[in-house]
Design a protein around this nucleic acid. Structure first.
Length: 889
RNA sequence: GGGGGAUUAGCUCAGUUGGCUAGAGCGUUUGACUGGCAGUCAAAAGGUCGCAGGUUCGAUUCCUGUAUCCUCCA
């Protein structure tokens, strides 16, 4: 039997023999395509070639591509594991022709590979051709039909496919064309005798499956819906590797192939459960389902992390977190893993894929650590949720239902997955109020939406100018005109938004805050100055935000004629750009010190500080931070001139080795910021210092964690860094002065602390001793009354605790105490009542006694049946209160 | 950006009409038993109840602000 490794190799070797260039898989995380989070098909990385935006390295290419799908027609994450053939991550084998060969070769080779190399039985194969679509004005694919007929010798295994199954389009416009699929029937003979496989093609049967899709790109869709015939026709094929292996290895399930069996065997050892004990296909056996879920998900997560996507709380990172958590959940619930287990599977995969995807082996340790951290965090979350659930089961034992609000609270506040709640509830015989949950979720969404919206009036157009422009890269001041303004109501009040023809104000973007400054208006009748508190980008416009503006009192003619001088706050701006340029240097230095896995996760620069989040799995040590500081400050001292390049084609920028930030969208032309081409090259639209020397000084102020796998550092630059150092110095100097300039400041403070603790203990001991004397005196005043030993007195103590202590001490010395003690503390009366447990009854209850008695001193109180305290505000009533308390006996 | 929650001993956490000498388990220290290890038993030490205000006779508990962490939504 061919191993999966051999099957993959045979594919690539076959196409090498047909003069194809083999290229490596693109990273699974789509870094340069803003429309995609992950590679979702074999052709995604070649999109630019089909669109004609780039030239392929060869006209014939073949590869295996790592793909990830979690949503779509057949890929709902929640379904994976319940059947035998759906996956989150999968490999797509493909061969491509860019204006080279077309249908004849593509179909002949496909058939040759399947039947000659892989030796798949011919009588189990079916092929489909496009039947045509009148509405779209696309004809029946006669060409493909004829080719297949000549290959197969007859048309009895050819199926006609409709537009949905057999016409392929990349988007609303662009290259498209019919396709031909090859299906295989893997059912046992007796079933085939009962029902011919031809009837089951494209019918979602787990054993009659499509294994290869050959797309003929021969048209181009225009915006008006019409089709043009392409000059350079292309071939785009995709063969699902996991399914192919199932077919060749004669298995009933993708999970029975050696691709997944390594992992599953380890899972069996770890869990002590046997996979497939009740029949492999069973979706009722949750142990089996769980193993499939884990085996599938660990691949997806491990390779996603390898390709640069850490689990996080939004975007692509959240997708990875959800996949990982789903696997942990299944392992936890059905395989009885209560401790991190996913991370232990990474070495299995690293070994299995070391020849085809060596990147996992290279980053084995890192990937393991990230997954383990994430597992620990989530297991803690699960534990908390389970405890809460247990309480709910106890409290609602008679209702047998968990209301929607509680379910929502579990998920919203404690991150406990809704379906897990439902699952556990079912096991306990509880129902879950799903409608109520959905209502709560809708409310939450509404809240978030509502908050996001501000009430904005329509723009009031003053001057019609279609091209407002930003000139801040070259100027800090502009003499210009008012284009439009509007009034906006926010939660905090009212503000005006102003758009100018030209502006030197940078609008917040890429982490750099917006500029502030002034707008000086000169109209024919008046002059006034507006203070700009912020500048934000909206639909490509620089929107200046001002708190007050007299626009409504000025005629439209005068506004139109107004000359506006826009000036940014230069000092603030210069502090901001120091921080921004320093951030670039810092990123480069971090990568140098910590490694290439350092990827920007977020950044923020204002005039005070630069804050930078990046992916890294452990605390950055003080030594590492110092190294980074040293590198950055060295680069500052080298006074490297800014090399700023505008309108660089994105491909050219990437060739330069530019660092692009994941999650940022880039156009075809980008701005590149270079400080020493060997050190820092970044795609960036922000403002920078003309030379690094201007930054002056760079100093970290903090390092910490934002979430698992992400660290946050903050740093200051320039005058702010100096100010900070001075502040610290001032504190130390002041401390020294206060401590009378000791030789070792730290040691003397420690000594002071120790001394203080010792003295405190001494005072306590003395007070206790004093209390003992009071106690002895009081013991002499014991009066027998109704079988109880009564002590009542007004005493002097240091604090409320001492009074408490005294009553307990007295209790210990007496057989059947009834103690009433009062004291005056800070001008307020305090009362304590202690009665023997044997005396406690409905009427003789310390809490009640004290409450009644406290009325005498205008106060209240409470406590336990045998001991209670009360306070009040009238010292003069203390004596009466004591008497009152005594009178209860 | 908005909502919810958490913050109590070295660690993990309990602690409701505001008054319970602020607790448990693990860990630490000491003592006893044992030939030693391990263990068992007994005892002890260890707390600004995140921080700052406020309400109250009295706040770990209620309110406001703030910091940090968790979590959901956008």
């Amino acid at each position: 039997m061919m191993t999966s490794h051999e099957i993959r190799k045979a594919f690539l070797d076959f196409f090498v023999s047909k003069q194809h260039l083999i290229v490596p898989s693109a990273p699974m995380v789509a870094k340069n395509d803003p429309t995609l989070m992950f590679q979702n098909s074999g052709m995604a990385q070649f999109k630019d070639f089909f669109l004609g935006n780039a030239t392929p390295p060869a006209t014939r290419i073949a590869d295996t591509q790592k793909c990830l799908r979690v949503s779509g027609k057949h890929n709902d994450l929640e379904e994976v594991g319940f059947d035998t053939y759906h996956h989150t991550m999968f490999e797509m084998l493909g061969n491509w022709s860019f204006g080279d060969y077309f249908k004849t070769e593509a179909l002949h080779w496909a058939y040759e590979l399947l039947t000659e190399v892989y030796k798949l039985p011919k009588d189990r194969l079916y092929v489909s051709v496009f039947e045509g679509d009148k509405k779209d004005n696309v004809p029946f694919d006669q060409e493909a039909f004829d080719i297949w007929k000549s290959i197969l010798g007859s048309d009895e295994r050819i199926i006609y496919g409709n537009k949905k199954d057999n016409f392929w389009e990349m988007g609303d416009v662009g290259p498209c064309g019919p396709c031909s699929e090859i299906h295989i029937d893997l059912r046992p003979e007796e079933e085939i005798a009962r029902k011919p496989g031809k009837d089951l093609v494209n019918a979602d049967h787990p054993q009659v499956v499509e294994i290869w899709n050959v797309v003929f790109m021969q048209f181009e869709r225009r915006a008006d819906g019409s089709l043009d015939v392409l000059e350079d026709k292309c071939i785009d094929t995709g063969m699902g590797f996991e399914r192919l292996c199932m077919a060749i290895q004669g298995k009933q399930s993708n999970y029975d192939t050696d691709i997944f069996q390594n992992t599953i065997q380890v899972l069996e050892e770890m869990s002590g459960l046997k996979y497939g004990a009740n029949g492999t296909l069973s979706s009722d056996n949750y142990g089996d389902v769980a193993m499939r879920v884990v085996a599938d998900h660990i691949r997806a997560v491990a390779f996603a992390i390898t390709d640069g996507q850490l689990p996080s709380n939004n975007g692509a990172g959240y997708v990875i977190r959800r996949i990982l958590r789903r696997a942990i959940r299944y392992g936890y619930s059905y395989l009885n893993f209560k401790e991190p287990f996913m991370s232990k599977l990474v070495p299995v995969l690293a070994k299995q894929f070391k020849d085809v995807f060596p990147e996992l082996k290279q980053q084995e340790e890192f990937v393991t650590k990230v997954i383990e951290e994430e597992e620990k965090t989530f297991l803690r979350t699960l534990d908390m949720g389970l405890k809460r659930l247990d309480q709910i089961f106890e409290n609602e034992a008679d209702k047998k239902e968990i209301d929607g609000k509680t379910v929502f609270e579990l998920s919203d506040t404690f991150g406990f997955p809704v379906d897990l709640t439902a699952l556990i509830a079912r096991e306990k015989g509880f129902k879950v109020d799903e409608a109520g949950f959905k209502a709560e979720l809708a409310k939450q969404k509404e809240r978030s939406r509502k908050d996001a919206t501000k009430e904005a009036a329509d723009w009031f157009e003053v001057n019609e100018l279609d091209n407002p422009s930003y000139i801040g890269y070259d100027h800090q001041e502009a003499v210009t005109k008012l284009v439009q303004y509007r009034k906006v109501k926010t939660k905090k009040g009212e503000e005006f938004h102003v758009v100018l023809e030209q502006t030197p104000f940078y609008a917040e973007m890429g982490g750099q805050v917006g500029d502030t400054g002034v707008l000086e208006f000169k109209t024919p009748k008046s002059e006034f100055t507006l203070e700009v508190v912020d500048c934000q980008l909206e639909a490509g416009l620089h929107v200046h935000i001002v708190k007050k503006a007299p626009f409504e009192d000025i005629s439209i003619e005068d506004l139109r004629a107004a000359q506006v001088t826009a000036k940014i706050d230069k000092t603030r701006h210069s502090n901001i750009i120091k921080n921004h340029s320093a951030t670039h240097l810092m990123l480069a230095a971090l990568r140098e010190v910590l490694g290439d896995h350092i990827v920007q996760r977020g950044s923020y620069q204002n005039d005070e500080v630069t804050r930078f989040d990046f992916s890294h799995f452990s605390k950055v040590t003080d030594e590492e931070l110092q190294k980074v500081e040293d590198i950055v400050n060295t680069k500052i001292r080298q006074n490297i001139a800014l090399d700023e390049r505008r309108n660089v084609p994105i491909d050219e920028a990437m060739t330069l080795g530019a660092t692009a930030t994941f999650g940022e969208k880039y156009g075809d032309f980008v701005r590149v910021i270079i400080f020493d081409p060997k050190f820092s090259i970044e795609l960036c639209g922000g403002n920078h210092v003309p030379a690094t020397g201007e930054i002056g000084l760079f100093k970290f102020t903090s390092e910490g964690s934002v979430s698992a796998g992400v660290r946050r550092v903050e740093a200051v630059t320039g005058i702010k860094a100096l100010e900070r150092l001075r502040e610290q110095e001032a504190i130390i100097n002041e401390l020294k002065a206060v401590m009378k300039s000791p030789q070792d400041l730290v040691a003397s403070i420690k000594a002071l602390q120790e001394e203080k603790t010792a003295l405190q203990k001494k005072v306590e001991a003395l007070e206790n001793e004093k209390l003992q004397n009071v106690k002895l005196d009081l013991l002499k005043t014991v009066v027998e009354k109704d079988g109880a030993q009564l002590i009542s007195a007004k005493v002097e103590v240091a604090n409320a605790d001492a009074l408490k202590q005294l009553t307990y001490d007295l209790k210990a010395k007496l057989e059947k105490p009834y103690v009433v003690l009062g004291t005056e503390l800070n001008g307020k009366p305090l009362l304590a009542v202690m009665i023997d447990d044997s005396l406690v009854s409905d009427t003789l209850h310390a809490g009640k006694i004290v409450k009644e008695a406290a009325k005498e001193m205008r106060g209240g109180g409470g406590g336990q049946p045998h001991f209670a305290t009360a306070g009040g505000s009238d010292v003069n009533g203390l004596q009466k209160a004591i008497e009152k308390a005594v009178s209860f006996l």
